[in-house]
Design a protein around this nucleic acid. Structure first.
Length: 504
RNA sequence: CGGGGUGUGGCGCAGCCUGGUAGCGCGCGGCGUUUGGGACGCUGAGGUCGGAGGUUCGAGUCCUCUCACCCCGACCA
């Protein structure tokens, strides 16, 4: 766009992080705002990415014994009233359907007519409707466990929306399981947060911290909420996935009962777990740079794009033939257990524009082939993760394409991990805590802070301080967190450390 | 929902204070020169100024209401 600009995306992260985020999405053609308040249009490039995420997750769900099913979009309002905390959590952000038809309003427009006897809400999450269904399915301990996942859209009437991170309507999956014992349900809750962590780290190349939420941060109605937390490039935390142990709260509210082996009637134990298109936001803010989106190879809709370069029709024939055969060879290679995904971009667009198009979309590897390359039986290779572009012989390129993608994937992970390391500190006193999270007035970028690991005794007493600094407790990390200490704020003895951070 | 800001061709903006029927850059079409690179020249298409109402002979410019978006706050995957 601007020849003088050093970066493809303007502003840069330093200049204006929030605006940079928007521009990366636009530059990569992932999504755009729609005429509907708070709702976005996910464009093909963004949707292909989502499909790749879905496929990987779905395979993992299946591998852990789950099946997919589908439940209604609309939920009778009374269903939501059954679990007290659940209502409190979601009632404020529900879209309500009150009529079932439209009629002319006499002024050339339409007005709703046919009021419903009982209003329906558009699901903000499906615990209630699924629970009501499960209640009918469960009679005996022999009916358990129920291990079901649903891919769906949900709607939450959020006050402030941001593309992918928080939209009124979003796509997600929600697993809902029923078990005969608490232990089994807890095991499921742990297993699924593990699946999410594995997906985040191995597929998204995004390091995450697994931990449990404090009572104030829990899912409404849950006994225990586990989450994976990731650090974005502005050092804020993003909750990337949650897995809830719901105890018997929902089964009691919805009468999910079964007769046990001994003949007693017992309430079942349930779990729910989900990740959403928010993961795309996480991906953007984990890896992208000032030239736009950077895709981890494993999830990239196209891992390699071939850009033919030629001057005229005569050259075109040769170059295209060469490019096509190169494509076939590359596609025959394997990466991460699947064929390498290669695209050719032979659009009638100027070479420079074409190159930047793919840079901004985050394609991991760009391969340019022109007459000079054909002579040398070579190709000119550029990696989205940086480094010098270089000419490679065709045989070498084909032989090493899988390794290159593997290396890029782990490089992205290492980079993100290093960013998190560099911005994670252990804090033992309130003064230090305040200083860490203080907004730096001289630095307009607003990128500051990070993860503060602190021992803490009591969540409630910290609230004034946390509110003042706009910091939240992200989670109590599960691993390496057994050393007791002293609460950073009150000086009282504390069992565990928590991650404190500003968050999305 | 509270505070602040914005809303003018696809995108980014100027014009508004000092009302008189719309301008710039990029992008887009055509032609040509270029081309291992986000090039250049000529030429062309495209907007009635978020919406509604009002003031006025006349409103993008003033007033009222409304909607949407962005930032901050409260809430949240």
């Amino acid at each position: 766009m601007n020849k003088a600009a050093k970066t493809a995306i303007s502003p840069t992260r330093q200049e204006d992080y929030a605006e940079w985020y928007q521009q990366v999405i636009r530059g990569a053609d992932l999504a755009e705002n729609s005429p509907v308040r708070g709702c976005m249009v996910i464009k093909p490039w963004g949707y292909r990415l989502w499909e790749n995420m879905q496929r990987a997750l779905d395979d993992m769900f299946k591998a852990t014994g789950h099946q997919n099913a589908y439940f209604p979009l609309l939920i009778p309002m009374s269903f939501l009233e059954k679990e007290a905390q659940h209502v409190e959590g979601f009632a404020k952000e529900c879209a309500v359907v009150t009529h079932h038809r439209l009629e002319p309003d006499g002024k050339g427009g339409l007005r709703p007519a046919g009021p419903l006897e009982e209003p329906l809400i558009i699901r903000p999450t499906s615990e209630t409707i699924i629970g009501a269904t499960y209640a009918k399915w469960v009679q005996s301990y022999r009916d358990l466990p129920i291990l079901i996942n649903q891919w769906a859209n949900v709607m939450r009437w959020e006050m402030r929306t941001r593309m992918f991170l928080r939209t009124a309507e979003f796509l997600w999956q929600e697993g809902h399981t029923v078990h005969a014992t608490a232990d089994e349900a807890i095991e499921e809750t742990n297993r699924m947060i593990g699946v999410y962590a594995e997906f985040a780290e191995n597929w998204m190349a995004m390091p995450v911290i697994v931990g449990s939420k404090t009572p104030l941060e829990r899912f409404p109605g849950a006994v225990e909420t586990l989450s994976i937390e990731a650090m974005m490039q502005d050092h804020k935390a993003l909750q990337a996935g949650t897995s809830h142990f719901l105890g018997q709260n929902f089964s009691k509210a919805q009468e999910i009962k079964f007769q046990s082996q001994s003949g007693d009637i017992e309430f079942a134990w349930t779990t729910s777990w989900g990740v959403s298109t928010r993961l795309i936001g996480a991906l953007i803010m984990t890896h992208s740079d000032d030239d736009g989106f950077v895709l981890p190879p494993r999830l990239a809709p196209a891992q390699v794009v071939i850009l033919p370069i030629y001057r005229d029709e005569q050259q075109r024939a040769d170059v295209i033939r060469y490019a096509e055969s190169l494509r076939a060879e590359l596609q025959a290679q394997q990466y991460a257990g699947a064929a390498v995904r290669v695209e050719m971009d032979d659009r009638d667009v100027r070479g420079g524009d074409k190159k930047w198009h793919h840079v901004k979309r985050g394609v991991p590897i760009r391969i340019e082939v022109g007459p000079k390359d054909i002579e040398k039986d070579a190709a000119f290779v550029s990696l989205r993760t940086g480094g010098k572009s270089e000419s490679m012989s065709r045989s070498q390129l084909v032989a090493s394409i899988g390794d290159m993608l593997t290396k890029m994937q782990s490089e992205l992970y290492e980079r993100a991990l290093e960013m998190r390391r560099a911005n994670t500190v252990t804090i033992t006193g309130e003064a230090e805590f305040r200083k860490f999270f203080a907004s730096t007035t001289e630095d307009s970028s607003e990128i500051h802070g990070g993860f503060a690991m602190c021992h803490f005794a009591d969540e409630d007493s910290l609230q004034p301080l946390l509110k003042e600094l706009k910091v939240t407790i992200r989670c109590i990390p599960r691993d390496n967190n057994d050393t007791p200490g002293i609460c950073f704020a009150t000086g009282r003895p504390a069992e565990k450390m928590a991650i404190f951070s500003k968050a999305y």
